[in-house]
Computed example of a mutant assay.
Amino acid sequence: MARTKEFDPDVALGRALNLFWRRGYEATSMADLVEHLGIGRASLYATFGGKHDLYVKALERYAQMCDPNLVEMLSQPGPALPAVRALVERYTEDSIRDPDRRGCMVVNAATELMPDDEPVARLVEASWTSLETALTSALIRARAQGEISADADPRALARFVLVFLQGLRVMGKSRGDPARIRDAAAHALAMLR
């Protein structure tokens, strides 16, 4: 007879996500996971596989939580440019106000594990492609509605915004002067007119 799990795998995955997000992949040991999740090592392995498997599942969960919200934000009917500008402002404030300096788990995964970790690279690229596609769509609508210049290249502009947003997340991990981030964001927002 199979034993029933004495823990909720969904809750455990959420707790693992938070630990990996806060500490990173390399700085989180299996012993840390066992202690933080309150689950025996054998149960962890049986449910999630090894540490890397659990990390990939946590990163997938993070992307599933965040990516649809961004796409929805950029897909609202009406003027498109205000949504793009609001996204830049949101990333700016999130980067400055993150008291734990966790940053974005996708960006953290990219800077810690890419380019050699194929499963992580696929997830990071999928997340970035999703955001780039949503930005491109919004900027195509903005151009069609006369919100940006008729000769603007929505895809190139979307790529600029994507790279800028990821850079904001990296800069937000520092305890440096928030004016650096705000000044850069103001300049990027000025380009989105």
Rank of each mutant, 00 (worst) to 15 (best):
residue 2 A to P: 15
residue 3 R to Q: 12
residue 5 K to V: 08
residue 6 E to S: 15
residue 6 E to I: 09
residue 7 F to D: 04
residue 9 P to Q: 03
residue 9 P to Y: 04
residue 11 V to A: 15
residue 13 L to N: 04
residue 17 L to Y: 04
residue 21 W to Y: 10
residue 22 R to F: 10
residue 25 Y to N: 08
residue 27 A to G: 09
residue 27 A to C: 04
residue 29 S to Y: 06
residue 29 S to G: 09
residue 31 A to F: 05
residue 32 D to M: 04
residue 34 V to D: 05
residue 35 E to Y: 05
residue 36 H to C: 10
residue 36 H to K: 08
residue 38 G to L: 07
residue 43 S to Y: 01
residue 48 F to L: 03
residue 50 G to A: 07
residue 51 K to H: 12
residue 55 Y to T: 04
residue 59 L to C: 06
residue 63 A to G: 13
residue 67 D to I: 12
residue 68 P to F: 05
residue 71 V to D: 01
residue 74 L to Y: 00
residue 75 S to C: 08
residue 75 S to K: 05
residue 77 P to T: 06
residue 78 G to W: 07
residue 83 A to H: 14
residue 87 L to E: 03
residue 92 T to S: 10
residue 94 D to M: 12
residue 98 D to K: 05
residue 100 D to F: 13
residue 102 R to K: 14
residue 103 G to F: 00
residue 103 G to T: 00
residue 105 M to V: 01
residue 107 V to C: 13
residue 107 V to P: 00
residue 108 N to H: 11
residue 110 A to N: 08
residue 112 E to T: 03
residue 112 E to C: 05
residue 114 M to H: 08
residue 117 D to W: 02
residue 120 V to F: 03
residue 121 A to D: 11
residue 121 A to T: 12
residue 123 L to A: 06
residue 124 V to Q: 01
residue 128 W to V: 03
residue 128 W to Q: 13
residue 133 T to A: 11
residue 133 T to Q: 14
residue 136 T to R: 10
residue 138 A to Y: 01
residue 139 L to Y: 02
residue 140 I to D: 09
residue 141 R to M: 04
residue 142 A to F: 01
residue 146 G to R: 05
residue 147 E to G: 06
residue 150 A to G: 14
residue 152 A to E: 13
residue 154 P to D: 02
residue 156 A to I: 07
residue 157 L to F: 07
residue 160 F to S: 12
residue 163 V to K: 11
residue 163 V to S: 15
residue 163 V to M: 12
residue 164 F to V: 04
residue 165 L to E: 02
residue 168 L to Y: 02
residue 173 K to V: 06
residue 173 K to F: 04
residue 173 K to A: 09
residue 174 S to Y: 12
residue 175 R to V: 06
residue 175 R to S: 12
residue 176 G to V: 06
residue 180 R to Q: 15
residue 181 I to N: 02
residue 181 I to H: 03
residue 181 I to C: 08
residue 183 D to F: 11
residue 183 D to H: 09
residue 185 A to I: 02
residue 186 A to E: 14
residue 187 H to T: 09
residue 188 A to N: 03
residue 191 M to D: 09
residue 192 L to F: 06
residue 193 R to P: 14
